[in-house]
Design a protein around this nucleic acid. Structure first.
Length: 267
DNA sequence: ATGGCAGTTCCTAACTGA
């Protein structure tokens, strides 16, 4: 079973690239972030024609998440409020950043974590509040999913120095600050492990490169797109890689897809 | 040190992203 995550930075702009990628990479589940489109305008048919079922939660201009699955999902849940009480969630579901499905008894959670803008900004506070709620959300789902969780998406956090091309002086930098990293560590401590780092320990592997500085040409990137697995699934994972090839295309997303393979029989 | 690019809408300017 193959599960992939990809921040496409507008599904309407990237539609053809995603279709091509799906044809070349026969994944069972594809989690998309930053679809940037309301549900009514999501380009469903090109993906349906490839045989995928679509589960989407979008909004105008910003954010937006979607999951494409080969098999019909056993369950679909949108937002934190599908799991947590309304008073806990507050307004944190207004931005469409969370969608989950159950496939092969595995719950696959697709996240678009807030960027946070600058350390100390209102958006940074929002990111930290959001991450605290995410921990509650994952804790609740852990209890009800004995077969395991796959928590993936654009986390907008590089957890370790080896995940950044130039990690110097990043303690107060957005996506690498000490507080953000600790917030993510607190989430992982509930029982999640990084699939990518099971197979690759060296530095120099990234999933995002800034458009503005021609960062991709020099591989000046960050690894901020992650796939985290509960212990049983982690043991069943047989590979995890970042596919940089779509980043080389004309008009690419600034992110590359990440794919994990699990040794689970496909029905 | 600064700004660089790309996407969207309130579309030829302003915003958000990371």
């Amino acid at each position: 079973m193959k599960i992939a995550t990809w921040n496409v930075n507008s599904i309407r702009t990237r539609q053809a690239q995603v279709v091509d990628w799906l044809q070349d990479n026969q994944v069972d589940v594809l989690c998309l972030q930053e679809t940037k489109v309301i549900d009514a305008d999501f380009p469903r048919s090109p993906f349906a024609e490839l045989g995928y079922h679509l589960y989407i939660s979008g909004q105008k201009s910003y954010n937006g998440v979607a999951i494409l699955t080969r098999e019909v999902a056993q369950e679909v849940s949108i937002g934190f409020s599908s799991v947590l009480a309304a008073e806990e969630v507050g307004d944190l579901d207004e931005q469409k950043r969370v969608i989950a499905v159950v496939v092969e008894d595995i719950r696959i959670i697709n996240l678009y974590v807030p960027n946070g803008s600058c350390v100390g900004s209102d958006k940074y506070d929002y990111k930290l509040t959001w991450l605290k709620l995410l921990r509650q959300y994952i804790c609740s789902l852990l209890e009800q999913q004995p077969s395991g969780l796959c928590v993936c998406g654009d986390f907008n956090i590089a957890l370790e120095d080896r995940d950044i091309y130039n990690p110097k002086d990043k303690d107060n930098h957005i996506m690498a600050s000490v507080v953000e990293r600790q917030a993510l560590q607190d989430i992982l401590a509930v029982g999640l492990a990084d699939a990518f780092r099971k197979f690759t320990s060296e530095e120099g592997h990234f999933s995002w490169w800034d458009y503005r500085t021609r960062a991709f040409q020099g591989n000046r990137g960050w690894r901020i797109d992650h796939i985290y697995l509960t212990p049983e699934l982690y043991e069943l994972s047989t590979g995890c890689r970042i596919d940089v090839s779509p980043r080389k295309l004309t008009k690419p997303s600034d992110h590359a897809p990440v794919i994990v393979e699990l040794s689970i029989s496909n029905k």
